[in-house]
């Protein structure tokens, strides 16, 4: 408590105030934050690799340059020719990891966007109208939240059949209630704020209050959540394809499926588990680092 007083004292002694709005100030803080920069670099690498996969990958991921040399007990590890070694069918592991980034990024981004969109619709409905609309929407959300995420994703993917689209929809569905609840909570607390009361007292129309005050001021945690969701979506996509619910064409490299198919060779060729696993970790870590730091940068409580 004495500390907060010191901070209060220094705060009021501060003459230089950041110019511009909260988002710009948050951006400035992020740019100077080593952890956030690490996250940015990891994500940039991930995106560059995904987008430029055909240019970077040394081999076609479907080619089997090592087909002749492969036996179940002898899968060559990293070498000068194949940096990440060969997989169980004699394909270049590095190229497959590189192409796998495309699938992961695609699934992650689309699933996150779908989940956020769905969650925001529900959240805005509940947060803007309140009363019985809120009760109905939130009960639906509660039910969705009560089903374990992976179980729901498996169920959806199983119903919709094996395809990348169903993976995306399944992961999105898991995230819908999370976004809905987050946004609704934020909007509820913003609705109680003085400036919303002020807007009401000015005679601003309700729709306008929701759209120009309540919603924009409720978005910060949603943006943070979206970043973190990208990380979990990548992991969930891997998990689903690990369980055999990924895309229909087994030749298209997916990190999760790559992990799954290495199970039998774990003893003889541990590199087959290591590289896709690392790829999943690094991509998820990048988004998590950014998300956590963004949360702090956007939250006035963490300001220094």
């Amino acid at each position: 408590m004495s500390l907060s007083q010191v901070e209060a004292a220094t705060e009021s002694d501060q003459v230089e105030q950041p110019v511009g709005n909260l988002r710009q100030a948050a951006w400035r803080r992020l740019r100077r934050d080593p952890v956030a920069i690490t996250g940015f670099v990891l994500i940039a690498m991930f995106i560059v690799v995904a987008v430029l996969a055909p240019l970077i990958a040394p081999y076609d991921p479907r080619d089997t340059p090592g087909a002749g040399t492969i036996t179940p007990t002898n899968i060559p590890g990293p070498s000068a020719e194949h940096w990440f070694g060969l997989d169980e069918q004699g394909r270049d592991e590095l190229s497959r990891v590189i192409y796998g980034a495309r699938q992961s990024l695609l699934v992650g981004v689309v699933a996150m966007l779908l989940g956020m969109a769905g969650g925001m619709v529900l959240g805005v409905l509940a947060g803007a109208f309140g009363r019985w609309v809120d009760s109905v929407v939130m009960r639906i959300v509660d039910i969705m939240l009560s089903i374990p995420g992976l179980l729901m994703a498996i169920a959806i993917a199983a119903v919709l059949g094996r395809s990348l689209t169903s993976v995306m929809i399944a992961i999105a569905a898991v995230n819908v209630p999370i976004f809905a609840r987050l946004l609704r909570g934020q909007m509820m607390s913003q609705r109680e704020s003085d400036y919303v009361l002020a807007a009401r007292s000015l005679g601003v129309r309700r729709r306008s209050i929701v759209l120009s005050h309540v919603l924009p001021n409720s978005m910060s945690p949603v943006i943070v959540q979206a970043t973190l969701t990208l990380a979990t979506a990548i992991i969930e996509a891997a998990a689903l394809s690990f369980l055999g619910l990924g895309g229909a064409d087994p030749a298209v490299p997916e990190w999760g499926r790559m992990l799954a198919s290495t199970q039998r060779y774990l003893a003889s060729a541990p590199h087959l588990a290591l590289f896709p696993g690392l790829a999943i970790m690094v991509a998820a870590l990048g988004f998590t680092l950014i998300g956590e730091r963004l949360r702090e940068a956007l939250d006035p409580k963490y300001r220094r």
Binding site: N21, L22, R23, S193, D194, Y195, L197, A198, A199, S201, L202, G203, V204, R205, S208, H213, P216, N217
Partner: peptide, 29 residues
């Protein structure tokens, strides 16, 4: 009939410029 609030920081939307604050009532009516 209008209102003046106790906490001037809380009663202003942090992402609204003063111009927007002052024109909002004009637009609303």
């Amino acid at each position: 009939m209008q209102m003046v609030f106790q906490d001037p920081m809380a009663s202003l939307d942090p992402r609204q410029s003063v111009e927007s604050v002052l024109t909002e009532p004009l637009r609303a009516h």
